[in-house]
Simulated scan of single mutants.
Amino acid sequence: MLEIRNLHVSYGQGDVLRGVSLGIPDGGFTALIGANGAGKSTLMRTVSGLMKPSKGSIVLDGQEISGQRAERVVRQGVALVPEGRKVFAPLSVGENLEMGAFQFLMRGTKDRYRRRLDFVLALFPRLAERLAQPAGTLSGGEQQMLAIGRALMCEPRLLLLDEPSMGLAPLVVTQIFATLSTLCEQGLTIFVCEQNSEVTLRHAAYGHVLENGQVTLSGPAGELLRDERVKEAYLGV
């Protein structure tokens, strides 16, 4: 579905990503693991259109999308759940979900919006109980549900998640990843970058290791879990 080829992304004088190449298969659950500062968030932001590469390409279903504006990338079927959730704190839960469905509402396709809203609220019933509540008053786990739900409102084909377990209790992390696995089983392509390597690889089918802006290891997630280098560097074994 997605092919990233020789991608370079720079901040100032230095490259954060240096020749990254990897593929995301259609309908799969792919993990990107690596230490803090490895470039994981930069890759996610570049794929989603929030940053522009200095070199390389990002190809979605045969179409080049690198360098496109973020709203156009969303219309191509790619949605990002950002690091730190980034909910609109003063707005209600319902208004946050409306923001995720802007493309439907701008076109006047309210029936499609309502169907998508029903889908998200069935996936996260807790949000249905809090539609009128300001997003900033939700717990961390509820805000993560809202951030995922907001991204799902645009009916993406590829869902990018940047550190979805950050700051959450282990039980909530388990629930979030179980929901992602369910979405993948329903046909949604999932690409997750995480420092929580073990839980991510246990849910993924395939994984990549990013170190200092370069992919240093790729393979089936089960093999990466057993790899001695991964165990020592990322699993605390």
Rank of each mutant, 00 (worst) to 15 (best):
G27E: 09
S181T: 14
P53R: 06
V20F: 09
L152K: 10
K55V: 00
E142D: 09
G27I: 14
S10Y: 13
S57D: 15
V78C: 01
L127F: 05
S92K: 03
Q76P: 02
G14F: 15
V215N: 07
G77W: 14
N6I: 05
G222R: 12
R150L: 06
L121N: 05
L180D: 11
G27T: 13
R114G: 00
Y11V: 14
G213M: 09
L17D: 08
R115P: 00
P53N: 09
M1P: 03
V93Y: 04
V237Q: 06
R72W: 05
N96I: 06
G27C: 12
G207Q: 06
R72T: 09
R85C: 03
Q195I: 02
E83D: 13
E198F: 00
G28P: 02
E228H: 12
A128P: 15
E3P: 01
E211Y: 08
L146E: 07
L97N: 09
G167H: 07
S48L: 02
M145V: 08
Q76M: 14
L97G: 06
R69H: 11
G23W: 00
L105D: 05
M106N: 14
R116C: 04
E155G: 07
Q76F: 11
G136S: 13
L117M: 15
E64S: 10
A151D: 11
R229P: 01
Q143V: 12
R115H: 11
P90H: 08
E95D: 13
L183G: 09
S21T: 15
E71V: 08
D61V: 05
S218E: 15
L32S: 11
K110Q: 14
V73Y: 05
P134T: 14
E185R: 15
P220D: 10
F177K: 10
R18G: 07
G140K: 02
R157V: 02
V209K: 09
V172E: 03
R5W: 00
S218W: 02
Q195Y: 02
V237P: 00
L60M: 15
A147R: 04
G28K: 14
L131G: 07
M99T: 13
L159I: 12
D15L: 08
S54Q: 14
N36Y: 14
A79N: 08
L235Y: 02
L217C: 06
I190R: 06
T179W: 00
I24W: 06
G62P: 12
P125D: 14
V78S: 04
G108A: 04
S54D: 14
R157S: 11
N196K: 09
A31L: 06
V78Y: 05
Y206E: 06
L121G: 09
V120D: 01
D111T: 07
L146I: 08
Q214S: 14
S197V: 13
F177M: 13
L225K: 05
V230W: 07
G14P: 01
G37A: 07
Q13N: 15
L131K: 12
S41D: 02
V93M: 04
R114W: 08
A132K: 12
